[in-house]
Design a protein around this nucleic acid. Structure first.
Length: 480
RNA sequence: CGAUGCGUGGCUCAGCUUGGUAGAGCGCUGCGUUCGGGACGCAGAGGUCGCAGGUUCAAAUCCUGUCGCAUCGACCA
Protein backbone atom coordinates (compact mmCIF):
# COMPACT_ATOMS: atom_id res chain seq x y z
CA UNK A 1 0.00 0.00 0.00
CA UNK A 2 2.72 2.40 0.97
CA UNK A 3 4.38 1.78 -2.36
CA UNK A 4 1.20 2.44 -4.28
CA UNK A 5 0.79 5.65 -2.44
CA UNK A 6 4.21 6.80 -3.46
CA UNK A 7 3.39 6.13 -7.07
CA UNK A 8 0.19 8.08 -6.96
CA UNK A 9 1.87 11.03 -5.36
CA UNK A 10 4.47 11.22 -8.08
CA UNK A 11 2.11 12.29 -10.83
CA UNK A 12 -1.12 14.17 -10.23
CA UNK A 13 -4.08 12.33 -11.69
CA UNK A 14 -5.44 13.75 -14.95
CA UNK A 15 -8.94 13.91 -13.57
CA UNK A 16 -7.86 15.80 -10.48
CA UNK A 17 -6.00 18.56 -12.26
CA UNK A 18 -5.12 18.21 -15.92
CA UNK A 19 -2.78 21.20 -15.96
CA UNK A 20 -0.83 19.87 -13.00
CA UNK A 21 -0.79 16.40 -14.52
CA UNK A 22 0.77 17.87 -17.65
CA UNK A 23 3.44 19.69 -15.69
CA UNK A 24 4.18 16.58 -13.63
CA UNK A 25 4.55 14.41 -16.72
CA UNK A 26 6.80 16.89 -18.44
CA UNK A 27 9.11 16.91 -15.45
CA UNK A 28 8.86 13.26 -14.45
CA UNK A 29 9.55 12.09 -17.96
CA UNK A 30 12.56 14.40 -17.83
CA UNK A 31 11.62 16.18 -21.01
CA UNK A 32 12.49 19.65 -19.74
CA UNK A 33 13.63 21.69 -16.85
CA UNK A 34 12.62 25.23 -16.14
CA UNK A 35 15.46 27.64 -16.70
CA UNK A 36 16.28 30.83 -14.90
CA UNK A 37 14.84 32.76 -17.82
CA UNK A 38 11.09 33.13 -17.49
CA UNK A 39 9.22 31.27 -20.16
CA UNK A 40 12.29 29.60 -21.58
CA UNK A 41 12.93 25.94 -20.95
CA UNK A 42 15.85 23.60 -20.95
CA UNK A 43 14.97 20.74 -23.26
CA UNK A 44 16.63 17.68 -21.78
CA UNK A 45 17.91 14.66 -23.71
CA UNK A 46 14.65 12.73 -23.44
CA UNK A 47 12.72 15.69 -24.82
CA UNK A 48 15.22 16.72 -27.43
CA UNK A 49 15.47 13.19 -28.78
CA UNK A 50 11.74 13.27 -29.52
CA UNK A 51 12.25 16.52 -31.38
CA UNK A 52 15.13 15.01 -33.33
CA UNK A 53 12.89 12.16 -34.44
CA UNK A 54 10.19 14.59 -35.46
CA UNK A 55 12.78 16.59 -37.39
CA UNK A 56 14.24 13.57 -39.09
CA UNK A 57 10.89 12.32 -40.33
CA UNK A 58 9.49 15.70 -41.32
CA UNK A 59 12.70 16.71 -43.03
CA UNK A 60 12.68 13.54 -45.08
CA UNK A 61 9.09 14.14 -46.12
CA UNK A 62 9.81 17.78 -47.01
CA UNK A 63 12.73 16.85 -49.20
CA UNK A 64 10.62 14.29 -51.04
CA UNK A 65 8.51 17.21 -52.20
CA UNK A 66 11.49 19.19 -53.43
CA UNK A 67 12.14 21.37 -50.39
CA UNK A 68 15.68 22.49 -49.58
CA UNK A 69 17.00 23.70 -46.25
CA UNK A 70 18.55 27.12 -45.71
CA UNK A 71 19.37 29.35 -42.80
CA UNK A 72 18.39 32.97 -42.31
CA UNK A 73 19.72 35.51 -39.79
CA UNK A 74 18.01 35.61 -36.43
CA UNK A 75 17.75 39.43 -36.42
CA UNK A 76 15.29 41.50 -38.36
CA UNK A 77 15.80 45.27 -38.76
CA UNK A 78 12.72 47.17 -37.72
CA UNK A 79 12.28 48.70 -41.18
CA UNK A 80 12.13 45.24 -42.72
CA UNK A 81 9.58 43.95 -40.24
CA UNK A 82 7.37 46.92 -41.05
CA UNK A 83 7.10 46.37 -44.76
CA UNK A 84 3.91 44.35 -44.60
CA UNK A 85 1.30 46.15 -42.54
CA UNK A 86 -0.86 43.28 -41.24
CA UNK A 87 2.22 41.28 -40.47
CA UNK A 88 3.78 43.91 -38.18
CA UNK A 89 0.51 44.52 -36.43
CA UNK A 90 0.19 40.84 -35.74
CA UNK A 91 3.67 40.37 -34.36
CA UNK A 92 4.79 43.72 -32.94
CA UNK A 93 3.24 43.13 -29.50
CA UNK A 94 5.33 40.07 -28.92
CA UNK A 95 8.75 40.68 -30.40
CA UNK A 96 11.97 41.09 -28.43
CA UNK A 97 14.21 43.97 -29.49
CA UNK A 98 17.95 44.23 -29.69
CA UNK A 99 18.96 47.85 -29.17
CA UNK A 100 22.68 47.67 -28.53
CA UNK A 101 25.68 46.16 -30.24
CA UNK A 102 28.24 45.80 -27.52
CA UNK A 103 28.19 49.09 -25.65
CA UNK A 104 26.86 51.25 -28.46
CA UNK A 105 23.22 51.85 -29.32
CA UNK A 106 22.29 50.59 -32.77
CA UNK A 107 21.29 53.02 -35.52
CA UNK A 108 18.21 50.91 -36.07
CA UNK A 109 16.92 48.44 -33.55
CA UNK A 110 16.40 44.84 -34.62
CA UNK A 111 13.98 42.26 -33.40
CA UNK A 112 14.79 38.65 -32.75
CA UNK A 113 12.80 36.78 -35.38
CA UNK A 114 9.29 35.83 -34.28
CA UNK A 115 9.01 34.23 -37.75
CA UNK A 116 11.03 34.85 -40.88
CA UNK A 117 8.62 35.87 -43.63
CA UNK A 118 10.23 39.27 -43.92
CA UNK A 119 13.74 37.85 -44.19
CA UNK A 120 12.74 35.34 -46.82
CA UNK A 121 10.89 38.02 -48.75
CA UNK A 122 13.84 40.38 -48.59
CA UNK A 123 16.03 37.60 -49.87
CA UNK A 124 13.62 36.45 -52.57
CA UNK A 125 13.27 40.00 -53.88
CA UNK A 126 16.87 39.81 -55.08
CA UNK A 127 17.18 36.12 -55.66
CA UNK A 128 14.22 35.72 -57.97
CA UNK A 129 14.53 37.27 -61.42
CA UNK A 130 13.01 34.94 -63.94
CA UNK A 131 10.28 32.34 -64.17
CA UNK A 132 13.21 29.96 -64.47
CA UNK A 133 14.04 30.71 -60.82
CA UNK A 134 10.67 29.41 -59.68
CA UNK A 135 9.43 27.75 -57.67
CA UNK A 136 11.61 28.38 -54.63
CA UNK A 137 10.92 25.89 -51.90
CA UNK A 138 13.04 26.65 -48.88
CA UNK A 139 12.76 25.57 -45.30
CA UNK A 140 14.69 26.41 -42.19
CA UNK A 141 15.02 24.70 -38.84
CA UNK A 142 15.60 27.25 -36.13
CA UNK A 143 14.23 28.80 -33.00
CA UNK A 144 12.04 31.87 -32.84
CA UNK A 145 11.19 34.24 -30.04
CA UNK A 146 7.80 35.55 -29.05
CA UNK A 147 7.51 37.43 -25.81
CA UNK A 148 4.55 35.55 -24.42
CA UNK A 149 2.90 36.60 -21.19
CA UNK A 150 1.72 33.23 -20.10
CA UNK A 151 4.06 30.36 -20.76
CA UNK A 152 3.86 26.59 -20.48
CA UNK A 153 6.44 23.96 -21.36
CA UNK A 154 6.21 23.05 -25.07
CA UNK A 155 2.79 24.62 -25.49
CA UNK A 156 3.88 28.20 -25.19
CA UNK A 157 7.39 29.32 -24.44
CA UNK A 158 9.17 32.55 -25.25
CA UNK A 159 11.66 30.76 -27.41
CA UNK A 160 10.68 27.64 -29.25
CA UNK A 161 12.10 25.37 -31.92
CA UNK A 162 10.35 24.94 -35.20
CA UNK A 163 10.67 24.66 -38.93
CA UNK A 164 9.35 27.29 -41.25
CA UNK A 165 8.95 26.59 -44.92
CA UNK A 166 8.74 29.51 -47.32
CA UNK A 167 7.96 29.03 -50.97
CA UNK A 168 7.55 31.32 -53.95
CA UNK A 169 5.60 30.34 -57.05
CA UNK A 170 4.76 31.72 -60.46
CA UNK A 171 1.02 31.35 -60.11
CA UNK A 172 -1.70 31.58 -57.51
CA UNK A 173 -2.77 28.03 -58.35
CA UNK A 174 0.67 26.64 -57.69
CA UNK A 175 0.87 28.45 -54.36
CA UNK A 176 -2.50 27.13 -53.29
CA UNK A 177 -1.48 23.65 -54.34
CA UNK A 178 1.69 23.86 -52.25
CA UNK A 179 -0.26 25.19 -49.27
CA UNK A 180 -2.60 22.23 -49.34
CA UNK A 181 0.18 19.78 -50.07
CA UNK A 182 2.04 20.82 -46.94
CA UNK A 183 -1.09 20.78 -44.83
CA UNK A 184 -1.70 17.21 -45.92
CA UNK A 185 1.91 16.34 -45.30
CA UNK A 186 1.56 17.63 -41.75
CA UNK A 187 -1.69 15.80 -41.18
CA UNK A 188 -0.30 12.54 -42.52
CA UNK A 189 2.77 12.95 -40.37
CA UNK A 190 0.66 13.47 -37.25
CA UNK A 191 -1.52 10.50 -37.98
CA UNK A 192 1.13 8.07 -39.19
CA UNK A 193 4.03 8.95 -36.94
CA UNK A 194 2.53 10.60 -33.88
CA UNK A 195 -0.61 8.41 -33.91
CA UNK A 196 -2.56 11.62 -33.51
CA UNK A 197 -5.69 12.15 -35.57
CA UNK A 198 -6.32 15.72 -36.70
CA UNK A 199 -9.03 17.81 -38.29
CA UNK A 200 -7.81 19.50 -41.45
CA UNK A 201 -9.39 22.81 -42.13
CA UNK A 202 -9.24 26.45 -43.02
CA UNK A 203 -9.05 29.24 -40.48
CA UNK A 204 -11.61 32.02 -40.48
CA UNK A 205 -10.33 35.48 -41.43
CA UNK A 206 -10.21 36.43 -37.79
CA UNK A 207 -7.96 33.53 -36.89
CA UNK A 208 -5.68 33.50 -39.90
CA UNK A 209 -2.00 34.40 -39.88
CA UNK A 210 -0.99 38.06 -39.90
CA UNK A 211 -0.53 38.93 -43.56
CA UNK A 212 -1.92 35.74 -45.05
CA UNK A 213 -4.63 35.41 -47.64
CA UNK A 214 -5.64 32.04 -46.26
CA UNK A 215 -4.46 29.92 -43.36
CA UNK A 216 -4.99 26.18 -43.17
CA UNK A 217 -4.59 24.29 -39.96
CA UNK A 218 -4.58 20.89 -38.43
CA UNK A 219 -6.38 20.77 -35.11
CA UNK A 220 -5.85 17.97 -32.65
CA UNK A 221 -7.94 17.16 -29.62
CA UNK A 222 -6.25 16.75 -26.27
CA UNK A 223 -7.33 14.31 -23.62
CA UNK A 224 -9.13 17.00 -21.65
CA UNK A 225 -11.21 17.99 -24.67
CA UNK A 226 -9.30 21.13 -25.53
CA UNK A 227 -8.06 21.73 -29.05
CA UNK A 228 -4.46 22.27 -30.01
CA UNK A 229 -3.43 23.88 -33.27
CA UNK A 230 -0.69 21.52 -34.32
CA UNK A 231 0.50 22.86 -37.64
CA UNK A 232 -0.36 25.61 -40.06
CA UNK A 233 0.07 26.24 -43.75
CA UNK A 234 -0.49 29.70 -45.17
CA UNK A 235 -1.19 30.95 -48.63
CA UNK A 236 0.07 34.52 -48.91
CA UNK A 237 -1.15 35.18 -52.40
CA UNK A 238 0.92 38.07 -53.75
CA UNK A 239 0.51 40.31 -50.69
CA UNK A 240 4.05 39.96 -49.41
CA UNK A 241 5.40 39.99 -52.96
CA UNK A 242 3.85 43.41 -53.51
CA UNK A 243 5.06 44.73 -50.17
CA UNK A 244 8.60 43.51 -50.80
CA UNK A 245 8.74 43.84 -54.57
CA UNK A 246 9.30 40.20 -55.40
CA UNK A 247 8.87 40.10 -59.15
CA UNK A 248 9.97 37.87 -61.94
CA UNK A 249 9.96 38.09 -65.70
CA UNK A 250 7.62 35.56 -67.26
CA UNK A 251 7.93 33.80 -70.62
CA UNK A 252 6.35 36.75 -72.33
CA UNK A 253 8.92 39.11 -70.81
CA UNK A 254 6.31 40.64 -68.51
CA UNK A 255 6.95 41.47 -64.87
CA UNK A 256 4.85 39.39 -62.49
CA UNK A 257 4.57 39.13 -58.75
CA UNK A 258 5.27 35.78 -57.16
CA UNK A 259 2.74 33.93 -55.03
CA UNK A 260 4.00 32.67 -51.72
CA UNK A 261 3.30 30.19 -48.99
CA UNK A 262 4.68 29.46 -45.57
CA UNK A 263 4.13 26.56 -43.22
CA UNK A 264 5.37 25.53 -39.84
CA UNK A 265 5.41 22.99 -37.09
CA UNK A 266 6.93 23.43 -33.67
CA UNK A 267 8.06 21.72 -30.47
CA UNK A 268 4.47 22.21 -29.43
CA UNK A 269 3.93 18.84 -31.08
CA UNK A 270 5.66 17.30 -28.09
CA UNK A 271 3.01 18.87 -25.88
CA UNK A 272 0.40 17.35 -28.15
CA UNK A 273 1.93 13.89 -27.86
CA UNK A 274 1.86 14.20 -24.09
CA UNK A 275 -1.75 15.35 -23.92
CA UNK A 276 -3.14 12.98 -26.53
CA UNK A 277 -1.50 9.78 -25.37
CA UNK A 278 -0.35 10.26 -21.79
CA UNK A 279 -1.96 8.62 -18.77
CA UNK A 280 -1.74 8.79 -14.99
CA UNK A 281 1.52 6.87 -14.98
CA UNK A 282 3.15 9.38 -17.27
CA UNK A 283 4.11 9.75 -20.88
CA UNK A 284 3.07 7.23 -23.52
CA UNK A 285 5.12 7.56 -26.69
CA UNK A 286 4.07 6.23 -30.07
CA UNK A 287 6.78 3.75 -31.10
CA UNK A 288 7.63 5.63 -34.28
CA UNK A 289 8.78 8.79 -32.48
CA UNK A 290 9.94 7.16 -29.29
CA UNK A 291 13.66 7.75 -28.89
CA UNK A 292 13.79 4.48 -27.00
CA UNK A 293 11.35 1.79 -28.04
CA UNK A 294 12.34 -0.95 -25.63
CA UNK A 295 13.82 -0.92 -22.15
CA UNK A 296 15.26 -4.22 -20.99
CA UNK A 297 14.95 -4.58 -17.23
CA UNK A 298 16.88 -7.41 -15.61
CA UNK A 299 15.47 -8.98 -12.48
CA UNK A 300 17.96 -10.10 -9.83
CA UNK A 301 20.67 -8.79 -12.04
CA UNK A 302 23.39 -9.72 -9.57
CA UNK A 303 22.64 -13.41 -10.15
CA UNK A 304 25.03 -15.29 -12.34
CA UNK A 305 24.34 -14.82 -16.03
CA UNK A 306 21.37 -12.49 -15.81
CA UNK A 307 23.12 -9.36 -17.04
CA UNK A 308 24.91 -11.31 -19.72
CA UNK A 309 21.64 -12.74 -21.05
CA UNK A 310 20.08 -9.30 -20.87
CA UNK A 311 22.96 -7.82 -22.84
CA UNK A 312 22.53 -10.50 -25.48
CA UNK A 313 18.84 -9.80 -25.66
CA UNK A 314 19.51 -6.09 -26.07
CA UNK A 315 22.11 -6.71 -28.76
CA UNK A 316 19.71 -8.95 -30.64
CA UNK A 317 16.98 -6.31 -30.64
CA UNK A 318 19.43 -3.54 -31.54
CA UNK A 319 20.67 -5.58 -34.45
CA UNK A 320 17.14 -5.63 -35.85
CA UNK A 321 17.11 -1.83 -35.76
CA UNK A 322 15.04 -1.52 -32.62
CA UNK A 323 15.94 1.40 -30.36
CA UNK A 324 16.70 -0.42 -27.15
CA UNK A 325 18.53 0.12 -23.90
CA UNK A 326 19.34 -2.06 -20.91
CA UNK A 327 18.69 -0.60 -17.48
CA UNK A 328 21.47 -2.17 -15.44
CA UNK A 329 21.50 0.55 -12.80
CA UNK A 330 21.45 -0.46 -9.15
CA UNK A 331 17.82 0.57 -8.68
CA UNK A 332 15.22 -1.99 -7.74
CA UNK A 333 13.11 -3.48 -10.53
CA UNK A 334 10.00 -1.69 -9.28
CA UNK A 335 11.79 1.60 -9.58
CA UNK A 336 12.85 0.81 -13.11
CA UNK A 337 9.31 -0.16 -14.09
CA UNK A 338 7.98 3.17 -12.90
CA UNK A 339 10.77 5.02 -14.60
CA UNK A 340 10.14 3.31 -17.91
CA UNK A 341 6.44 4.06 -17.62
CA UNK A 342 6.91 7.72 -16.76
CA UNK A 343 9.21 8.07 -19.74
CA UNK A 344 6.66 6.48 -22.02
CA UNK A 345 8.94 3.83 -23.46
CA UNK A 346 6.57 1.63 -25.52
CA UNK A 347 7.80 -1.80 -24.44
CA UNK A 348 9.49 -3.13 -21.36
CA UNK A 349 11.24 -6.48 -21.45
CA UNK A 350 11.60 -8.19 -18.09
CA UNK A 351 14.25 -10.84 -17.83
CA UNK A 352 15.04 -12.76 -14.65
CA UNK A 353 16.53 -16.09 -13.60
CA UNK A 354 13.15 -17.83 -13.88
CA UNK A 355 12.74 -16.61 -17.45
CA UNK A 356 16.23 -17.55 -18.44
CA UNK A 357 15.71 -21.04 -17.10
CA UNK A 358 12.47 -21.33 -19.07
CA UNK A 359 14.03 -19.76 -22.16
CA UNK A 360 11.62 -16.84 -22.27
CA UNK A 361 11.05 -13.26 -21.18
CA UNK A 362 8.11 -11.04 -20.34
CA UNK A 363 7.09 -8.15 -22.60
CA UNK A 364 4.93 -5.41 -21.16
CA UNK A 365 3.35 -2.87 -23.45
CA UNK A 366 3.15 0.66 -22.11
CA UNK A 367 -0.15 1.63 -23.66
CA UNK A 368 -2.28 -1.19 -22.21
CA UNK A 369 0.13 -2.64 -19.61
CA UNK A 370 -0.63 -6.04 -21.05
CA UNK A 371 2.00 -8.64 -20.14
CA UNK A 372 3.08 -11.07 -22.82
CA UNK A 373 5.27 -14.08 -22.35
CA UNK A 374 7.64 -14.67 -25.20
CA UNK A 375 10.24 -17.30 -25.90
CA UNK A 376 13.70 -15.84 -26.32
CA UNK A 377 14.13 -17.11 -29.86
CA UNK A 378 11.08 -15.14 -30.99
CA UNK A 379 11.74 -11.88 -29.19
CA UNK A 380 12.80 -9.80 -32.17
CA UNK A 381 9.82 -10.56 -34.33
CA UNK A 382 7.42 -10.36 -31.41
CA UNK A 383 8.75 -6.97 -30.40
CA UNK A 384 8.62 -5.69 -33.97
CA UNK A 385 5.06 -6.84 -34.28
CA UNK A 386 4.16 -5.40 -30.92
CA UNK A 387 5.63 -2.00 -31.73
CA UNK A 388 3.49 -1.95 -34.80
CA UNK A 389 0.43 -2.97 -32.84
CA UNK A 390 1.01 -0.32 -30.25
CA UNK A 391 1.41 2.36 -32.89
CA UNK A 392 -1.89 1.41 -34.49
CA UNK A 393 -3.73 0.86 -31.23
CA UNK A 394 -2.69 4.28 -30.05
CA UNK A 395 -3.98 5.88 -33.20
CA UNK A 396 -7.23 3.96 -33.02
CA UNK A 397 -7.73 4.94 -29.41
CA UNK A 398 -7.00 8.61 -30.08
CA UNK A 399 -9.28 8.55 -33.09
CA UNK A 400 -12.12 7.09 -31.05
CA UNK A 401 -11.56 9.75 -28.44
CA UNK A 402 -11.70 12.47 -31.07
CA UNK A 403 -14.82 11.11 -32.70
CA UNK A 404 -16.65 10.66 -29.44
CA UNK A 405 -15.86 14.25 -28.50
CA UNK A 406 -17.51 16.04 -31.36
CA UNK A 407 -20.93 17.54 -30.67
CA UNK A 408 -23.27 18.85 -33.32
CA UNK A 409 -25.33 21.79 -32.19
CA UNK A 410 -28.09 23.77 -33.86
CA UNK A 411 -29.02 26.47 -31.35
CA UNK A 412 -27.09 28.94 -29.27
CA UNK A 413 -28.40 27.39 -26.07
CA UNK A 414 -27.14 24.00 -27.20
CA UNK A 415 -23.83 25.62 -28.09
CA UNK A 416 -23.40 27.12 -24.65
CA UNK A 417 -24.40 23.89 -23.04
CA UNK A 418 -21.87 21.97 -25.13
CA UNK A 419 -19.04 24.33 -24.25
CA UNK A 420 -19.85 23.87 -20.58
CA UNK A 421 -20.66 20.20 -20.44
CA UNK A 422 -19.27 18.40 -23.46
CA UNK A 423 -15.52 18.78 -23.77
CA UNK A 424 -14.34 18.52 -27.34
CA UNK A 425 -15.10 20.00 -30.71
CA UNK A 426 -18.44 21.55 -31.44
CA UNK A 427 -19.72 21.46 -34.99
CA UNK A 428 -22.02 24.36 -35.71
CA UNK A 429 -23.02 26.56 -38.63
CA UNK A 430 -21.71 30.08 -39.01
CA UNK A 431 -22.93 32.99 -41.11
CA UNK A 432 -19.43 34.25 -41.81
CA UNK A 433 -19.56 37.46 -39.80
CA UNK A 434 -16.77 38.35 -37.43
CA UNK A 435 -19.32 39.77 -34.97
CA UNK A 436 -20.77 36.32 -34.37
CA UNK A 437 -17.31 34.87 -33.95
CA UNK A 438 -16.43 37.52 -31.39
CA UNK A 439 -19.70 37.17 -29.56
CA UNK A 440 -19.27 33.42 -29.27
CA UNK A 441 -15.79 33.87 -27.94
CA UNK A 442 -16.87 36.46 -25.40
CA UNK A 443 -19.85 34.44 -24.24
CA UNK A 444 -18.24 31.03 -24.11
CA UNK A 445 -14.42 31.33 -24.49
CA UNK A 446 -14.71 28.87 -27.38
CA UNK A 447 -13.07 29.96 -30.62
CA UNK A 448 -13.52 28.90 -34.19
CA UNK A 449 -10.89 26.25 -34.79
CA UNK A 450 -11.42 25.65 -38.47
CA UNK A 451 -13.76 25.06 -41.37
CA UNK A 452 -13.16 21.44 -42.35
CA UNK A 453 -11.66 20.70 -45.75
CA UNK A 454 -13.37 17.35 -45.97
CA UNK A 455 -16.92 17.51 -47.28
CA UNK A 456 -19.15 17.33 -44.24
CA UNK A 457 -22.88 17.43 -44.07
CA UNK A 458 -24.33 20.71 -42.79
CA UNK A 459 -25.63 20.62 -39.23
CA UNK A 460 -28.31 23.23 -39.90
CA UNK A 461 -29.02 26.03 -42.36
CA UNK A 462 -28.80 29.03 -40.06
CA UNK A 463 -25.98 30.57 -38.02
CA UNK A 464 -25.81 29.13 -34.53
CA UNK A 465 -25.24 32.62 -33.18
CA UNK A 466 -27.37 35.15 -35.09
CA UNK A 467 -29.86 32.84 -36.84
CA UNK A 468 -29.20 34.29 -40.29
CA UNK A 469 -28.80 31.90 -43.20
CA UNK A 470 -25.46 30.13 -42.99
CA UNK A 471 -23.66 27.58 -45.09
CA UNK A 472 -20.26 27.47 -43.39
CA UNK A 473 -19.66 24.57 -41.07
CA UNK A 474 -17.19 25.41 -38.33
CA UNK A 475 -15.43 23.34 -35.70
CA UNK A 476 -15.40 25.31 -32.48
CA UNK A 477 -13.73 24.62 -29.20
CA UNK A 478 -11.69 25.77 -26.28
CA UNK A 479 -8.07 25.78 -27.28
CA UNK A 480 -4.61 25.86 -25.82
C1' C B 1 -0.50 43.54 -18.39
C1' G B 2 -4.01 41.98 -14.17
C1' A B 3 -4.94 38.39 -10.00
C1' U B 4 -2.83 34.72 -6.73
C1' G B 5 1.04 32.09 -4.64
C1' C B 6 6.13 30.94 -3.67
C1' G B 7 11.68 32.11 -2.91
C1' U B 8 15.62 28.29 3.38
C1' G B 9 21.18 22.01 1.01
C1' G B 10 19.92 18.94 -5.71
C1' C B 11 14.14 18.40 -4.74
C1' U B 12 9.68 19.05 -1.41
C1' C B 13 9.14 21.71 2.71
C1' A B 14 9.37 22.95 8.43
C1' G B 15 11.34 26.97 11.33
C1' C B 16 9.33 33.27 11.09
C1' U B 17 3.67 34.83 15.07
C1' U B 18 7.18 35.50 20.28
C1' G B 19 14.92 37.68 17.10
C1' G B 20 19.70 34.01 20.25
C1' U B 21 23.66 31.94 15.04
C1' A B 22 19.56 26.18 10.66
C1' G B 23 16.22 21.25 10.62
C1' A B 24 13.28 16.97 8.35
C1' G B 25 12.02 13.68 4.36
C1' C B 26 13.60 12.43 -0.39
C1' G B 27 17.92 12.55 -3.48
C1' C B 28 23.49 12.21 -3.52
C1' U B 29 28.52 9.50 -1.88
C1' G B 30 30.81 4.92 0.46
C1' C B 31 30.25 -0.12 2.43
C1' G B 32 27.07 -4.32 3.19
C1' U B 33 22.43 -6.98 2.63
C1' U B 34 18.52 -6.98 -1.23
C1' C B 35 16.02 -7.46 -6.30
C1' G B 36 9.03 -10.24 -10.63
C1' G B 37 5.73 -2.94 -9.09
C1' G B 38 9.36 3.10 -6.52
C1' A B 39 13.94 -2.34 -0.79
C1' C B 40 16.90 -1.79 3.79
C1' G B 41 21.00 -0.99 7.47
C1' C B 42 25.27 1.74 8.86
C1' A B 43 28.56 5.80 7.87
C1' G B 44 29.06 10.52 5.29
C1' A B 45 28.98 15.08 2.10
C1' G B 46 26.07 19.22 1.18
C1' G B 47 22.94 25.72 3.10
C1' U B 48 26.74 33.45 3.55
C1' C B 49 17.99 31.22 4.42
C1' G B 50 16.49 35.30 -3.60
C1' C B 51 19.04 40.24 -3.43
C1' A B 52 19.90 45.25 -1.19
C1' G B 53 19.28 48.51 2.66
C1' G B 54 17.49 49.42 7.77
C1' U B 55 16.31 48.32 13.22
C1' U B 56 19.15 45.50 17.10
C1' C B 57 24.40 43.50 21.37
C1' A B 58 22.26 39.78 17.95
C1' A B 59 18.05 38.91 11.88
C1' A B 60 16.03 33.05 8.04
C1' U B 61 12.75 35.46 11.70
C1' C B 62 10.99 42.50 12.43
C1' C B 63 10.75 47.01 8.75
C1' U B 64 11.54 49.14 3.70
C1' G B 65 12.73 48.37 -1.17
C1' U B 66 13.85 45.24 -5.12
C1' C B 67 14.43 40.87 -8.24
C1' G B 68 12.95 36.17 -9.83
C1' C B 69 9.81 31.97 -10.71
C1' A B 70 5.12 29.32 -10.88
C1' U B 71 -0.25 29.08 -11.45
C1' C B 72 -4.73 31.37 -13.35
C1' G B 73 -6.96 35.16 -16.70
C1' A B 74 -6.63 38.86 -21.49
C1' C B 75 -3.15 37.92 -26.32
C1' C B 76 -0.77 34.13 -29.12
C1' A B 77 2.25 28.26 -32.46
Amino acid sequence: MAKDKKLVEAITSMDTDFAQWYTDVVKKAELIDYSSVKGCMVIKPAGYAIWENIQKELDRRFKETGVENVYMPMFIPESLLQKEKDHVEGFAPEVAWVTHGGLNPLQERMCVRPTSETLFCDFYANDIQSYRDLPKCYNQWCSVVRWEKETRPFLRSREFLWQEGHTAHATAEEAEERTIQMLNLYADFCEEVLAMPVIRGKKTDKEKFAGAEATYTIEALMHDGKALQSGTSHNFGDGFAKAFGIQYTDRDNKLQYVHQTSWGMTTRLIGAIIMVHGDDSGLVLPPRVAPLQVMVIPIQQHKEGVLERAEELKAMLAKAGIRVRLDDSEKSPGWKFSEQEMRGIPIRVELGPKDIEAGKCVLVRRDTREKIECTLDKVTETVEELLDNIQHAMYTRAKAHLESHISDVKSYAEFQDAVENKPGFIRAMWCGSEECEIKIKEDTTATSRCMPMKEEEAVADVCVCCGKPAHKLVYWGKAY
